[in-house]
Computed example of a mutant assay.
Amino acid sequence: MEAGFDTGARSCSKRIMSKAFAIFMIALMAIQIVKPLGLPGLKKRGDFWKLAFVAMAAISITAALGHWS
């Protein structure tokens, strides 16, 4: 095997974690719309976009780090 070759089990767990994170963030956004979470900065229903921004930033950082390693 090559030194930089990624095994199937490792990449599978990365995909599962990525999907789990995405589902978790979508659930948080849905909950925020129905009943605000009440956390600082998330007091109104319209603040769900802040959760979307955090999710997009986290996914972007993860993708950038994945290309460098």
Results as ranks from 00 to 15, higher is better:
Met1Thr: 12
Ala57Ile: 14
Ala20Trp: 08
Leu65Asn: 05
Phe21Cys: 04
Cys12Leu: 13
Gly38Ser: 06
Phe21Ser: 06
Met1Val: 13
Leu65Tyr: 04
Met1Tyr: 09
Asp6His: 07
Met56Cys: 10
Lys19Tyr: 04
Leu28Ile: 13
Leu37Asn: 01
Lys14Val: 06
Ser60Cys: 08
Val54Ser: 11
Arg45Leu: 02
Ile33Ser: 08
Cys12Gln: 12
Ser69Gln: 14
Ile61Ala: 07
Leu51Pro: 00
Gly46Trp: 02
Ser13Ile: 15
Ile61Asn: 02
Ala3Leu: 08
Ser11Thr: 13
Ala3Ile: 06
Arg45Trp: 05
Pro40Ala: 05
Leu51Ala: 00
Ala57Gly: 06
Thr7Glu: 10
Leu28Thr: 09
Leu65Met: 09
Lys35Ser: 15
Val54Phe: 13
Leu65Val: 09
Trp68Thr: 15
Ala20Phe: 04
Leu39Lys: 03
Leu42Ile: 03
Val54Lys: 04
Thr7Tyr: 04
His67Glu: 08
Gly38Ala: 07
Ser13Lys: 12
Glu2Ile: 11
Cys12Glu: 11
Lys19Thr: 09
Ala9Leu: 11
Ile33Tyr: 01
Gly4Thr: 10
Lys50Ser: 01
Gly4Leu: 11
Ala63Ser: 08
Ile61Arg: 04
Phe48Pro: 00
Ala3Val: 07
Val34Ser: 05
Leu37Val: 02
Met29Glu: 10
Trp68Ile: 15
Leu42Arg: 01
Met1Glu: 12
Gln32Leu: 06
Ala20Met: 12
Thr7Pro: 06
Leu42Cys: 07
Gly41Cys: 09
Leu28Trp: 00
Arg15His: 07
Lys35Tyr: 14
Ile16His: 04
Arg15Ser: 12
Ser13Asp: 13
Leu39Cys: 05
Thr62Ser: 11
Ala22Val: 06
Gly66Phe: 02
Thr62Gln: 07
Pro36Glu: 04
Arg10Gly: 05
Leu51Phe: 02
Leu39Trp: 12
Gly8Gln: 13
Pro40Gln: 03
Asp6Phe: 08
Ala55Ser: 12
Lys50Tyr: 01
Cys12Ile: 04
Arg10Ala: 14
Lys50Val: 03
Ala20Ser: 10
Lys43Tyr: 10
Ile16Ser: 10
Ala52Val: 02
Ser69Thr: 11
Lys14Ser: 03
Arg45Ser: 11
